[in-house]
Design a protein around this nucleic acid. Structure first.
Lengths: 157, 157
DNA sequence: TGCTAAATAGGAATGATTCCTAAACAGGAA
DNA sequence: TTCCTGTTTAGGAATCATTCCTATTTAGCA
């Protein structure tokens, strides 16, 4: 996706959001990324151009954009929130090795029907499929004996 | 599911885990729950019977059980980890109002095929569908004007 | 019964996120 | 254009789930 500054400004106005340089830069960085960055990632990316930028502002901005429906939060594990400006219906593939998240836009995944066995008055608004596995590089670097616990605290998933 | 203490002890042995009263109690509490409790929930539930129990032990135990494949972590949002001892393939419905997680065992959801557009060497090991929406009580208690932002920091999803 | 590695408890540390507040600013009104 | 007001920003402190560290206890085997 390629959005000009004007496009972004219009988007913000359309949602009743003020358009500030920081906000624009943060949103733009997110739109141009496919890496599902964390707040800290975005902070690192935008900081050089705005040395006074506060991580706090990144969190606040992401919260505002999420509320406005311009970005969504993606989570793998409970560790830190990752964000995505891709609003078209899509799903995710997560590498359990390097924690990379890939977008999957297979249309057949968008035709799932409401599951059986739900309370009658439950209203589904959306759903997402999360595929987990290992990417090529992570598969190759995994030694065949990685399964034995090393005696330390077990690692998340 | 109803597991006797003997069943649990056998399960632990089968995974090469020591069987301790605390570990057994924590696992049993999880097996008997359908509420996808957090570590703190389990701590609160088991504490009365084991007043010396440490929350630390609950975390450690859940880590061990997860590594052994006896429990899985379920996440809604990035806030805190929730756990599930239901190992049969199933999916989740999450109420965005009260954060309740329901299990969904609709067999048609277990027949999804690997999505298109994936790098050829990516190996999917499993997947889960997360449906989001609002349960009956939450729908009814939502006033029609809840959408207007109150001027405070926006709330998570 | 003794040994040893694993498990436990407690306290301290970490780190992501949120809270609080004063100053700066965007955007509409005059 | 200038002024006003509510929003946004930055910075520091606070919160809270989770992990780390460590000494003590214990399960399970020899």
């Amino acid at each position: 996706m390629n959005l000009s500054l004007d496009d972004i400004q219009q988007k913000f106005r359309g949602c009743g959001l003020k358009s500030t340089p920081q906000r624009t830069a943060i949103y733009q960085a997110l739109v141009h990324s496919t890496a599902h960055p964390t707040a800290e990632d975005l902070f690192a990316q935008v900081s050089p151009a705005y040395p006074m930028l506060s991580l706090n502002t990144v969190y606040y901005t992401l919260g505002v954009l999420r509320t406005a429906g311009l970005v969504q939060e993606v989570n793998i594990g409970h560790d830190r929130a990752r964000f995505d400006a891709n609003l078209s219906p899509h799903h995710h593939v997560i590498c359990l090795g390097c924690q990379t998240i890939l977008d999957v836009m297979d249309p057949k995944l968008n035709r799932l029907t409401s599951p059986s066995g739900l309370p009658r008055d439950f209203e589904i608004t959306n759903y997402q499929v999360a595929f987990r596995g290992y990417c090529g590089p992570c598969r190759r670097s995994q030694s065949p004996m990685t399964t034995s616990s090393s005696g330390k605290r077990p690692v998340s998933q």
